[in-house]
Structures are given as C-alpha cells and as structure tokens.
Simulated assay, not measured.
Amino acid sequence: MFHVKKRTLLLIAGIVWLIAGFNVARLGVLSYRVIESKWYLYILAIVVFCAFGMMFFKMSQKHTKRIMGYEATRPFWHFFDLKAYMIMACMMGGGIGFRAAGIFPDIFIAFFYSGLGCALALAGVTFLRNYIQYENLLLD
C-alpha cells in the first residue's frame, strides 16, 4: 500500500521541507510589509537562519542516513520517523497558536519566520540534492 523506493522518500522529504519553508518565509516577508523595517531585523533573520540552518542540516543528514538504511521500498510517509513527526506537529501547532493568539508582534514574526523559513527551505534543498545524487550516496 503506497510503498515507494528509498530514493523517492528523499524526493518527498525535499518537497515537504521546501513547501514548509516557503510558507513560513512567506509569513515573515508579509510581516515585513506591515512594520517599519529596520536594518538590524535583517541581521536577526540571518542569525535565526544560521542557527536553525545548522540544526536542520544535521537533521537532514540523519534522516538521509536512516532512509538509505531501509530495504528497497517503504510506505511514503517514512521520510520522517515518529520523533520528527511529533516535533513537526509541536512546531506547527505552536507557531500557528502563538500567531493566532497575537503573542508575538509582527516585528518578531518578520525576522524570525523569514530566517526559519529559509532554513527549512534549505533543508528541502539538501534532501533534493541527496535525491539527485542518490547513486553517489549508495557508494558511501
């Protein structure tokens, strides 16, 4: 039932992370449009990007290694493990909940979501690179 090859799991992960990253970054960019933009907000966005980018890069390496260890095919949702799904649910739920409650001002949403979204998208690019270089991964 809906089993895919290991390589396809990398493609699915890449698409999911790219979509998530784009949507989060989009919210950050939209917030920049309703605030008075200051130069230091862009620096803060870069700091957030670097911090989360390193974390997501390590995570993408871990998930790629796990996926490469699978047998030939797996259910399509196995691009994540249970822990990753739980973390994703908490992050999404927290982000949506905090924004809906108005806990964080637009100035925070602007730099934080821009940096976070770009870091998420970079993880998607990493998975897509691993999808493209699949044959080389098999040799490692």
Rank of each mutant, 00 (worst) to 15 (best):
M1Y: 07
M1I: 10
H3E: 14
K6C: 06
R7D: 09
R7H: 04
L9I: 10
L9F: 15
L11T: 05
A13T: 09
I15T: 14
V16Q: 11
V16S: 13
A20N: 07
G21C: 08
V24D: 08
R26C: 08
R26T: 14
V29G: 09
L30M: 10
I35A: 11
E36Y: 03
Y42K: 09
Y42H: 14
Y42D: 15
L44R: 06
I46G: 15
V48A: 09
F49P: 11
F49L: 14
C50S: 14
C50E: 07
A51F: 13
F52Q: 05
F52T: 11
G53N: 08
G53L: 04
M55C: 04
S60A: 10
Q61Y: 11
K62R: 10
K62M: 10
K62W: 02
K65V: 06
R66S: 10
I67M: 04
I67K: 02
Y70C: 08
Y70A: 11
E71S: 14
A72T: 13
A72F: 00
T73M: 05
P75K: 06
P75W: 00
P75L: 11
W77N: 11
F79C: 08
F80L: 08
L82Q: 08
Y85M: 00
M88D: 03
M88V: 09
A89S: 10
M92A: 14
G94I: 11
G94T: 06
G94F: 05
F98L: 11
A100V: 05
G102K: 04
F112I: 07
S114M: 12
L116S: 13
L116I: 12
G117M: 04
C118L: 11
L120F: 07
G124I: 02
G124Q: 02
T126W: 01
R129G: 01
Y131C: 07
I132Y: 00
Q133S: 08
Q133I: 00
L137R: 00
L137N: 07
L138Q: 14
